[in-house]
Design a protein around this nucleic acid. Structure first.
Lengths: 242, 242
DNA sequence: GAGTGGTCTAGACCACCAC
DNA sequence: TGGTGGTCTAGACCACTCC
């Protein structure tokens, strides 16, 4: 009678994927409360404990945020505490103020070989390329070149960017309904070329961090590819290992 | 009647700290099984579920490793799957082979200002300084300078290092009973000086990653400070963000 | 078959929040 | 005061490992 099930999946994982579906479908939007554990338990015909375990995992993955006494919320990049969730750069003097994003350029193009591979789209498909500067106080510290699938980001323009004071991902979430879930960064050291040096106010040839990031939305779908050049004269990239 | 308890700590956290104590005291050694959940529940006079929750957290923190049907084990850097747990450097060609550690120098010194601050010891306290090369295949990729508190690492010498084929942390664990729990890395970009360039076989001035790491054992006690210079010509530092 | 961790349930009570 | 998540318990059963 043993099931011999190589695809065995516990109930709470099935519930988890049902909740995930509801999130993907937009049934509950970022920043909003989702139904209480008891309600979800009734809806899915399982015990509260099973829903609880599903939500536990999703909270650990930063998809949901629990607030005791209030409810469980859909994680949002609009939340001040999560605005620069993926930015690991920290000032050496310990200043905790948020950086400011300054858009430089924004134009349309067709995906080349690299962009198509990174974004999982066809070569020649429309993309949007975006350049921006990140400033801590008055100091320019990062220059980013960002590649986005044109199909998803229709209508993105310099005007859109200039009228936004928060983080890019909060803009993407609010304007394009796109939620960034996780990212992967590949870091190398490179020398500043002349134009980059000018933008970051460092000498040509200065060593910089090259940070290539691919960002994923639901279903592990890549929706952003960017390359950042970080000046580490007064900042460093902080990483916790465990 | 409300408790107004700013120091409220749920039972499972108290159990967790009791298990932590047992780990620290060496009651169970790395790689060994700890008692079953049921046994621990009896020992601490709580339900199995409470022990379970305590162990869940410790497993999430990589302190314990659960193995269904077998038991729960104390995490160990001797475990092949965890040998280079803290090394984020990955070859660009996707080669998965483990790096090899080649000791270069090992000498005794007194802690200067920086080492004493990083290691939380007195200035002038004895330290051991260690230099080593990390090779992927035949390629030299990382050169590390490692500062260790002399008090803990008594007897560490070139002979010790040369007679060891695994990772440094597995040596530390086995020979000095010191378990590395977590670490914090600060990454910057720097230019190779002449001697570093020679060691890594790159031209002087080549941009390198400077990775400063402080490593902690139980009780958040710092026990290692190191600075690594990474050649990123054929490798990159990989970081997962979520 | 015996022992381990893994899942699921049901119920009681606590801590926190809003009204 | 009522609703939410958070803790704790007890018991049943499942999946995995080893003998």
């Amino acid at each position: 009678m043993s099931q011999e099930s190589p695809t065995f999946s516990p109930l709470y994982r099935q519930i988890k994927s049902l909740i995930l579906q509801a999130l993907e479908s937009g049934e509950w939007r970022p920043g909003q409360v989702i139904p209480s554990e008891q309600e979800l338990a009734t809806r899915f015909s399982v015990s509260q404990g099973t829903v609880r375990k599903a939500i536990d995992e999703m909270a650990a993955e930063n998809l949901l945020v629990r607030k005791q006494g209030k409810g469980t919320y859909v994680a949002s990049h609009n939340d001040p505490r999560a605005m620069f969730r993926f930015l690991r750069l920290v000032p050496m003097d310990g200043d905790l103020s948020h950086p400011q994003s300054v858009p430089l350029d924004c134009w349309r193009a067709k995906a080349g070989q690299e962009a198509s591979r990174m974004l999982g789209i066809e070569q020649g498909a429309p993309i949007i390329i975006l350049r921006r500067l990140l400033r801590f106080g008055t100091k320019p510290v990062v220059i980013d070149e960002i590649y986005l699938p044109g199909e998803i980001f229709q209508g993105l323009s310099m005007e859109t960017l200039q009228g936004w004071s928060g983080s890019l991902y909060s803009l993407f979430e609010t304007r394009f309904g796109l939620r960034m879930i996780r990212a992967q960064e590949r870091i190398r050291a490179v020398a500043a070329d002349r134009s980059t040096g000018e933008a970051l106010k460092v000498a040509e040839g200065t060593p910089l961090l090259s940070v290539e990031r691919v960002t994923y939305t639901y279903g592990d779908k890549p929706v952003e590819w960017r390359r950042g050049l970080y000046s580490t004269a007064e900042h460093f990239y902080l990483n916790e290992l465990s």
